[in-house]
Design a binder for these strands. Structure first.
Lengths: 151, 151
DNA sequence: CGGATTTTCTTATCACGTTAAGCAAATCTT
DNA sequence: AAGATTTGCTTAACGTGATAAGAAAATCCG
């Protein structure tokens, strides 16, 4: 009696694809805004993390901005070229660096704050704040799961 | 009384980042499985869609697999090279093509079905089937929103 | 101390994401 | 039917995603 489901789950009810579509829905307009500002979505995430948490090393940035280190290496080079971050050697550990956002970087965030807020308001209006919070809670719960437990 | 929230939403409660993290959580193990099978996540999505819906043209595949046409062009070339799909000209509209999955493609899906199911079971066990369904419903609702309504 | 291991970051490679531009076939318009 | 527009797909260019490999500094350990 264990052969009742012999087909893969339909893509309609596939969690990976649903996550992808939802992400595209919210990122589309943001990407447009950021393109006008001259930064990519990923560069924006790095700036946001630095603005929020202060001086960090690349490993910490990667963790908080959900980027892999090889990608971050390139992004930091780009942002440095644009004058939006600075790098200093770590005082005691010469492997590490201290990355800091510049005033120009902070200004870019400020310039896009209003539009960013507008998108959040749109989400709340059309989905309801409670559903939105519920969705965030579920996503965070999913992210907190560890493999190797209940298989 | 309108300057109460002057900072951007914390990245902790940022929907785009939460979606990204959740997606990484579920895709990580799947990617590993697919790498062993010699296909990428996107190639897998294309095969799944073709298996599920039969003969499609590239535009329809792009829609259902959540890929952009330029990416799909490359992916179809790769899959054709691997013998997992075939292309035929459309009988009446010479701009279109008819893409079909081959037996080899179907076999690849079958080969990975069990592992795919294991991941679904893990999700249900650790999050609960109801929460999982709720999450899918919320994601689909979000995807169904249209801009330009309640801003 | 000194070799082995680990950590931190970079480089390299290939595939994909995104935007724009290009081209051929179909459709619309008059 | 001829020209303009639209549709379907491809190509190009650049940045990122993912894996592996490399290099330098710190740490571990006998």
């Amino acid at each position: 009696m264990e052969t009742e489901a012999t087909l893969p789950p339909l893509t309609h009810r596939s969690l990976p694809i649903a996550l992808l579509r939802a992400r595209e829905k919210v990122m589309g307009p943001i990407r447009q805004m950021l393109a006008d500002a001259g930064v990519t979505e990923q560069q924006w995430r790095v700036l946001r993390v630095l603005e929020e948490r202060g001086v960090l090393d690349p490993t910490e940035i990667a963790e908080h901005s959900c980027l892999l280190l090889p990608s971050l290496t390139r992004i930091l080079q780009t942002l440095q070229g644009k004058g939006m971050i600075t790098r200093k050697p770590h005082p005691t550990d010469r492997r590490k660096q201290q990355i800091r956002i510049t005033d120009a970087g902070r200004q870019l965030i400020l310039d896009n704050l209003q539009e960013s807020r507008r998108l959040n308001a749109w989400l709340k209006n059309n989905m309801g704040e409670e559903k939105l919070e519920l969705l965030l809670d579920l996503l965070n719960e999913l992210d907190g799961l560890e493999r190797g437990e209940g298989e």
